[in-house]
Write a protein that binds this DNA or RNA. Structure first.
Lengths: 224, 224
DNA sequence: TCGTTATGGTAGTATTACTATCGTTATTGA
DNA sequence: TCAATAACGATAGTAATACTACCATAACGA
């Protein structure tokens, strides 16, 4: 069976964690730990104990824990883009293509052995709880210049271009897609923790949110 | 001239900062400091120097800096709800009422001496950069039980009920409003820091986002 | 065999987020 | 007027965090 690897931007790490055994343990266990502890309580010290190594060794891969979070979220978005490309390439109708893309974005994931070191279900929980912390930071402009958000931008572009194909006159394809990319996980969070802010319920949140978002996108782009 | 005060939930503080001189200095200067430093670099130590007091004294008002942030953001949402109520009470047509509410939510603010200790422009920047950190925290369920998010929920309800009046058949008024409440500041952030994710530009972001959001909401609720 | 890469081990530092205790001053109400 | 109490300041101390620095060693390929 072919081994797949998502190629990520060099700037996301000091040394590519996909290149060594220790690097892969760092990625694997950091997903588990951040999922369990939350990003704030997660530390390189705790991770070093988990992987039976040292803080110093982890710093050889990631400048700090914030960069590690960016790495994980970037991986998630790249993976999403890969699945959209894969799942839509045989579809000819642009509207059906967009519908499929939105479904991929909103779908609930489970562990998939295609990428053995990544527990996709845990990573999706991290996305829901922590992803906004990647960019809500004082040094955003500095790190953005390094290109660490390329994965997110690229995904946004892919879907926005689908909209342009369906209706070139719609004036805000990028704003609409970035809005719904955020909403797709925010609404899951609200369903779990702030139910007064949403109609969706824990049990069927993912499927219902998918309907809500497809509805929102298609009525918006077909109204102009 | 009448002195106005927004009454906020007791659980937001240890001692009401609006009840003493020191409390008001804490609020006033914390807005300035968080705006300048960002929430991560902001500390009670730095604030205590700014207000010429001590860390211990600040802890008598707020359990920790996260609670202080929640207090400030709650103030913002309560203030928004107050302005919506004020600006829409003379409007009869439900659609015009909703349009006005959305405009209030999306408007850019400047310092308004109605509330002398609050610099609304600075507070809006804090909203844009830091507000999601109020709820993206591991102890969300615990603090939510205390009712610290009542202000946000109340605002969401106010606007969602307007939608119900216009179209009782629309199935997701709360989800739609929580989505656009988030989008209204997220898109400003993107315009400033991640322009690849949006069509809006720094200069006219607020007005254009207002149009985008009104458009999105009205086409959505009129489509069912 | 030599040099490089990968890792481990240890130590140390400034800062943070508190907690605790005590003393002083101002206010209040009996 | 006296006594209690609230409000605040001052100081000290602690465990944890987010690093940085430096040296040792094992493996491996040319």
């Amino acid at each position: 069976m072919a081994q797949l690897q998502l190629k990520l931007n060099d700037k996301l790490f000091q040394k590519d964690p996909q290149s060594t055994d220790l690097g892969m343990r760092i990625v694997e266990k950091s997903i588990e730990l951040i999922d369990n502890l939350g990003f704030e309580a997660f530390t390189f010290k705790k991770l070093s104990i988990e992987i039976e190594s040292t803080e110093a060794s982890i710093y050889r891969y990631f400048e700090n824990k914030h960069r590690l979070l960016i790495y994980l979220i970037s991986w998630y978005w790249s993976w999403t883009e890969y699945r959209i490309t894969f799942d839509t390439h045989a579809i000819d109708d642009p509207s059906a293509q967009l519908a499929k893309a939105l479904e991929v974005i909103c779908a609930k994931h489970s562990y998939d052995k295609t990428f053995p070191i990544v527990d996709e279900a845990a990573l999706q929980r991290i996305l829901i709880n922590e992803s906004d912390k990647t960019y809500l930071t004082k040094n955003i402009d500095e790190i953005n210049k390094e290109g660490v958000f390329k994965g997110y931008k690229s995904l946004c572009k892919l879907v926005a271009e689908m909209i342009k194909k369906i209706n070139p006159k719609f004036p805000y394809p990028y704003a609409l897609i970035s809005t719904i990319l955020e909403a797709s996980h925010q609404q899951v969070f609200f369903a779990h923790h702030l139910p007064a802010l949403t109609e969706f319920e824990r049990e069927d949140a993912f499927e219902k949110i998918s309907l809500f978002i497809k509805d929102l996108v298609f009525t918006a782009i077909n109204s102009k």
